[in-house]
Simulated assay, not measured.
Amino acid sequence: MTTPAVTGAQQPVAEGLFTWPPAADRPTRLIGSECTGCGLVSFPAAPDCVRCASAEPKERLLADRGTLWTYTTQNFRPPSPPYDGPEAFEPYAVGYIELPGELLVEARLTEPDPDRLRIGQAMRLTLVPYTVRDDGTEVVTFAFAPDEESVESEEETA
């Protein structure tokens, strides 16, 4: 099976997960919700609060940077469905990113090598290709990448 060529058109993997379209003047942000009753922050955005059952959430743009709380690697192709990624499987890492003062987000990591990841590592939100549709539209999803800017500033202060 050949992968269709990307036509330049892109779309998010699902509406309402992250700000779209990307813009050079603002970082991409995950879209969560905050309960107006008890303050619980949820991702993805929830219509009802799982803590107090309030049905009055407000949209909340989550932090675009956090720290790696834990991670694991996916070294084999997951079963299909639900996986509908490319036929040619490449190992990848999945982790929980702690967004300060908000919550833990489970996400794919852009760095697949476990030797280059560490608990407490600074991470930043980014968009990555997920698949290419038959019409050439590239579908993108969110992931977290090691935050090289934080690594550089840590090295400067050491």
Score class of each variant (00 low, 15 high):
T3M: 08
T3Y: 07
P4E: 00
A5M: 15
T7Q: 05
G8H: 10
P12T: 09
V13M: 04
G16S: 09
P22Y: 15
D25K: 07
R29M: 07
R29E: 12
L30P: 14
L30I: 08
T36G: 07
G37V: 12
S42Q: 04
D48L: 05
D48R: 08
C49A: 14
C49E: 00
V50R: 14
C52D: 11
C52T: 04
K58Q: 11
E59Q: 02
L61P: 13
L61N: 15
A63N: 13
G66S: 03
L68A: 09
W69G: 12
T73P: 09
T73Y: 05
Q74R: 08
N75V: 05
P82S: 07
P82Q: 06
D84C: 07
G85F: 05
P86L: 11
F89Q: 06
Y92F: 15
A93T: 02
I97A: 01
P100S: 06
P100N: 04
E102A: 13
E102H: 06
V105S: 00
E106K: 12
E111W: 02
P112S: 02
P112I: 01
D115E: 15
D115N: 12
I119G: 10
R124K: 15
R124C: 07
T126C: 14
V128S: 00
P129M: 01
Y130P: 02
V132I: 13
R133V: 02
E138P: 06
V139M: 04
A143K: 07
F144P: 00
A145M: 01
D147W: 07
E148G: 00
E152K: 10
E154T: 12
E156V: 11
E156L: 15
A158N: 12
